[in-house]
Amino acid sequence: MPDPYEAPLPKPTPETRPYWDALRKHELHLQRCGACNEAYFYPRNFCPNCLSSDVAWFQASGRGRLHTFTIVHVTGPNPVLPVPYVLAMIELEEGPCLMSNLVGVEPDPSSLWCEMLVQIEYADVTEECTLARFRPVEGA
């Protein structure tokens, strides 16, 4: 990891702050709707499926599947990881999809496949910010 970390950092907003605060404690928190039972991402103070305000945070397992990905070879001046790196969409066990990086694997198309099982890895990129990255499940 470059020191200091110069890649883009998120700046939390009121509705997303609990998500980022949980990541700093190395927990992945998502929201679920009490009215329609749908879990969703990114954070909002209402359910994007049915617009109910009856939503609550819960701790997710951090397990999921690699839904789709790209192996980025060309970037701007401050890449998030050394190139080439894997930009990934992760489909979480609980349903929602989120963007992340896949680490702990060769950034090569022959080492990667859609639906590969993955698990969360907490990356403390600065004192204030932890990012949710993912790595392949061992032996899967």
């Binding site: 980022w20 060309v74 970037t75 890449p79 963007m99 990012l131």
Partner: peptide, 21 residues
Amino acid sequence: GQFEAPFGVGGPATRYTLAAT
């Protein structure tokens, strides 16, 4: 800025590739 940029979305080539894959 919160949910994509920190993972290195760097221009359209990093977006359409997700559909292609």
